[in-house]
């Protein structure tokens, strides 16, 4: 496959130069592209401000706007048949449905008659064995202080020993 020598390695401005013969349609794309870059810049400014909620709002808000623009102008969803747009939104809706129905069990760590013990214990950062040595605490299982004084008669059963303490409590 003979690729012409003009295989451009630079990004951005190179393709900008391509649209020699303009037309109302052309600037339209480059204009949108420019707006997308501006939005990217804004979403980057968020973390510099330092206010967490503002950062999150701008980051995800802008992501949605960028997604809308790419879908509308670049993927021509504005001139596509209705049922295609409906199909894609239905799939997004299904993902929202999955998220909402799974959240009470996975996102929350306690509920009616149950609590997720391990999720609380997992707050101790895992063995991130590197520079920030001081921060990471005892790795792996933290030993739950088993009620050692189990009554004497609890001799090891014939088959596989079932140690007194369980991760359960």
């Amino acid at each position: 496959m003979s690729t012409p020598s003009s295989h451009s390695h630079e990004h951005g401005h190179e393709s900008g130069g391509h649209e020699a013969h303009d037309g109302a349609h052309h600037t339209n794309y480059v204009k949108i592209w420019a707006m997308l870059l501006v939005l990217l810049g804004v979403s980057l400014a968020g973390p510099e401000l330092g206010i967490r909620t503002v950062t999150l709002l701008t980051a995800f808000g802008i992501a949605v706007v960028k997604a809308y623009m790419v879908a509308k102008y670049f993927m021509h969803l504005n001139i596509e048949r209705r049922f295609v747009v409906q199909l894609l939104t239905v799939c997004l809706g299904l993902m929202m449905l999955f998220f909402l129905a799974t959240a009470p069990d996975v996102m929350k760590h306690w509920g009616m008659n149950w609590r997720n013990e391990s999720a609380k214990n997992a707050n101790i950062p895992e063995a991130t064995h590197h520079a920030e040595g001081g921060e990471h605490a005892a790795a792996g299982h933290e030993v739950v202080p088993a009620h050692e004084a189990a009554p004497a008669h609890q001799a090891a059963p014939a088959h596989e020993a079932a140690p007194a303490h369980g991760a359960g409590e």
Partner: peptide
């Protein structure tokens, strides 16, 4: 992100 946005631009210009 910048690189992908730009490649999206060149993709749509290619389509054009």
């Amino acid at each position: 992100t910048f690189v992908l946005l730009t490649s999206s631009l060149s993709a749509v210009l290619a389509h054009q």
